[in-house]
Write a protein that binds this DNA or RNA. Sequence first.
DNA 1: AAATGGGTCAACCGCCCTACT
DNA 2: GAGTAGGGCGGTTGACCCATT
Length: 243
Amino acid sequence: MVKEETRKGPWTEHEDLQLVYYVNLFGERRWDFIAKVSGLNRTGKSCRLRWVNYLHPGLKRGRMTPQEERLVLELHSRWGNRWSRIARKLPGRTDNEIKNYWRTHMRKKAQERKRALSLSSSSCCSTSPNNDIPIDSSAKAKTEEGTSSKDSEEVKGKVNEEGAKGYPIDRIWDEIASSEEMSSGLVYESCIDEGNSFSYAPLTSPLWDYCFDSLWRMDEEENKMLLPMSDLSAYNYGHSREP
DNA sequence: AAATGGGTCAACCGCCCTACT
DNA sequence: GAGTAGGGCGGTTGACCCATT
């Protein structure tokens, strides 16, 4: 028997619905199992990723709020590129989302900052080679990750150690963060923790809305029939990029 | 109107950790 | 304790979208 090749690339609506159904059935674990029994030609990892980053109920969509932005800054300055950890403090946001946000927004800010610094100090002397910072948080990540992935004071120590050696990126990030706080006129209070959440209504995944309204109301038997998937093609959820 | 560049986001890859045998 | 499989995580890539030239 020829083993069918594992599917890659963008998910279809049909796949999404299948995945949602089977996750609902078996829970958010055993991804390999779900991948197999669902008939999706995907890896367990792929299924998990799709669920976590896109299909999970309670996911927020849209731009980060100023509060969230500040929280990301605050937590990143504390933990570095521990995206999943940071994400846990931002209900409805995924590590991927935060990572993307950080990369685009902070890189931009770093560039602006760098430009501003180079302008203001163009007549100055301190043009150390280190000022040619890598415009990417990965540099910081490498520094912070150190030899272990364990988050701890050790990491902080490592960072400080690097800083002491004159590695400027941390200062740059700190400055960015503090200028963010200044410009917003607010200092974020770390009042958001497990168990607490933002007060605004979560914007759930559109697919979830659909499923919640229709799929999950079906009884067990109807579920088994998995509703005519072809009907679902009529359902056009906004951010699908299916060809 | 076409070209281009930057921003956004979904998805994959590879490494690491953990639980299980 | 060693080996293995599954899952989690961070980094990276590439396609799409939109604004600007």
